[in-house]
């Protein structure tokens, strides 16, 4: 049906089309910009972000004891390991591990040595995210009476994954070592996680 051709339409885009297309493009930019608040409002809000890092006082934790704190909605296992537990963890050859990566959040291809999973000079403290890497259960081993599994660390009751005293997977269906969250010592016995 479009047989009529406007006088000024012969050379491609004319002035009129330019105005229409320009207006539509300008409106589209505004519409896209207006989408951003609608998307951003789903992000963690300021009160959630303010809890993104926590400080934990380690002083009350006796050797051999462990505590669990909540960080970003996840359980953090903090264990004051006995010297023999540290020795046992250090003695393991990385090559025989199921997961040779240290699984420290924010690093890649770090060998899964016990030294890499702890802080220098603070080797007795193991701080890790207490979630089994198989299907997300919380492994046992924090309380004194808990079953710690054949490697003396943690044992996940869901599907029988066993972790050693450095939180590395040694047996069972879990594919990876338990993760180490980002943390640092702000004082001798105080850490900041996150």
């Amino acid at each position: 049906m479009a047989t009529t051709i406007d006088d000024d339409q012969q050379g491609g885009i004319n002035r009129r089309d330019f105005i229409y297309i320009g207006t539509a493009a300008f409106a589209a930019i505004g519409g896209a910009a207006a989408m951003w608040p609608l998307i951003d409002q789903w992000n963690p809000d300021a009160s959630t972000l303010s809890l993104a890092s926590i400080e934990v006082d380690l002083a009350p934790i006796q050797p051999g004891q462990a505590i669990t704190v909540l960080w970003r909605g996840k359980p953090i296992f903090i264990r004051n390991r006995m010297p023999e537990e540290v020795e046992k963890a250090k003695a393991v050859d990385v090559k025989e591990l199921k997961d040779p990566d240290a699984e420290v959040i924010g690093t890649a291809n770090l060998p899964a040595t016990d030294a890499n999973r702890t802080k220098p000079g603070k080797e007795k403290w193991l701080v890790m995210i207490g979630i089994c890497t198989h299907l997300g259960c919380i492994p046992k081993g924090q309380s004194a009476g808990d079953e710690k599994g054949p490697y003396g660390g943690w044992f996940c009751p869901c599907h029988g994954s066993a972790y050693d005293t450095s939180g590395r997977i040694r047996m069972g269906p879990a594919p990876r070592n338990m993760e180490i969250p980002p943390y640092r010592f702000v004082e001798d016995t105080k850490i900041k996680i996150g």
Binding site: P37, D40, Q41, N43, D45, A46, S47, T48
Partner: peptide, 11 residues
Amino acid sequence: KLMRDTSYGWL
């Protein structure tokens, strides 16, 4: 809380 903490909540 929406007005204060949520991104663009006030908007």
